[in-house]
């Protein structure tokens, strides 16, 4: 009797141990390719060559640490390209944030002809892969180039043109996301502000926008990241390094004729990653609250 209970107790102990550890084992196994990939990236940036995860020198022995891969930092072009990436990312944050918060407010609150049609059309556009639009957009940018004054800033092979294209491609998502936040706000607050004497625009700016800050923050983070790492649009609509951003600069390092220094490309990739990491450290709490609960702070 006593032995039987003892045995069943130990059996359930094993079970419990397995039940606790198995999920972790599975999780570790499934993320290990990513972790190993990043490990390689960091090691590669500081070595001449790598054999698996090990840095090796010219003779093939383990060792051979070097800082030479980071020599691109002395190239003035990299700073120009980094600035371009930054301008593009910030431009997207401002452009998409501004347009979609205004558009979403009117779509959420006002009744006008074509409202429903507009909403379903934006959703449809969002479902469109942007690659299919590349050639058409090329013609649009080319046309813009010919317009005096505007063309110099927003035409083909300009940062403004790239930003314009990326902003418009991201607007459907932004509008729908913001509309969700606006829809959750009670009408009473807005009515109260209108009666208190505010104009519609002031209501939007002083009452509504402060209440959907979490939504705006989420949108800003999405857009910063998508602008920072944008490749396809900048690659397609820019030539040369003057208006290239970081991912395009990296692509330009892969030469068709000369041997490619992959370790240096890894270093540039690492360089591109650093601001994102810093950014995440500061915003992760806000991101979590946005993902977990949608809006917070509204009554």
């Amino acid at each position: 009797m006593t032995t039987a209970t003892f045995e069943s107790g130990s059996q359930s102990g094993v079970k419990r141990f397995l039940g606790r550890t198995l999920p972790y084992v599975l999780l570790v196994l499934s993320i290990s390719p990513i972790v190993l990939g990043y490990a390689w990236l960091i090691i590669a940036t500081f070595s001449y060559r790598t054999e698996g995860l090990f840095p090796i020198d010219a003779a093939g022995n383990i060792g051979g640490w070097t800082l030479s891969n980071w020599s691109f930092l002395t190239d003035p072009a990299i700073w120009r390209v980094t600035l371009n990436s930054f301008v593009l990312a910030v431009g997207m944050v401002i452009g998409v944030g501004f347009v979609s918060s205004m558009a979403a407010y009117s779509l959420s609150r006002m009744n006008f002809a074509g409202r429903k049609g507009f909403l379903s059309l934006t959703l449809l556009l969002h479902a469109f892969p942007s690659v299919t639009l590349l050639i058409a957009i090329f013609f649009v940018l080319n046309f813009l180039s010919k317009i005096p004054a505007i063309g110099a800033w927003f035409g083909y092979n300009t940062l403004g043109g790239v930003a314009l294209v990326m902003i418009s491609l991201d607007l459907p998502l932004g509008i729908w996301l913001m509309k969700g936040f606006f829809d959750n706000l009670s009408w009473d607050m807005e009515r109260a502000a209108l009666i208190d004497g505010a104009s519609r625009f002031r209501v939007w700016w002083e009452i509504i926008i402060p209440l959907i800050k979490p939504g705006l923050a989420a949108l800003a983070i999405f857009n910063f990241l998508s602008g920072w790492s944008a490749f396809l649009i900048p690659f397609t609509f820019t030539v040369g390094s003057k208006v290239a951003n970081l991912p395009v600069y990296m692509r330009q390092m892969i030469s068709d004729t000369a041997p490619t220094n992959w370790n240096m490309i890894a270093a540039v990739g690492m360089f591109q990653l650093i601001p994102v990491l810093i950014f995440f450290i500061f915003t992760q709490e806000m991101l979590l609250s946005v993902y977990a609960g949608g809006s917070k702070g509204g009554t």
Binding site: D188, M189, A193, I195, L211, T299
Partner: peptide, 15 residues
């Protein structure tokens, strides 16, 4: 219209 209004939800500005 120079009116004042009180709402059921109070509609205070939380920020």
């Amino acid at each position: 219209r120079n009116i004042g209004m009180v709402f059921q939800s109070y509609a205070l500005y939380p920020h």
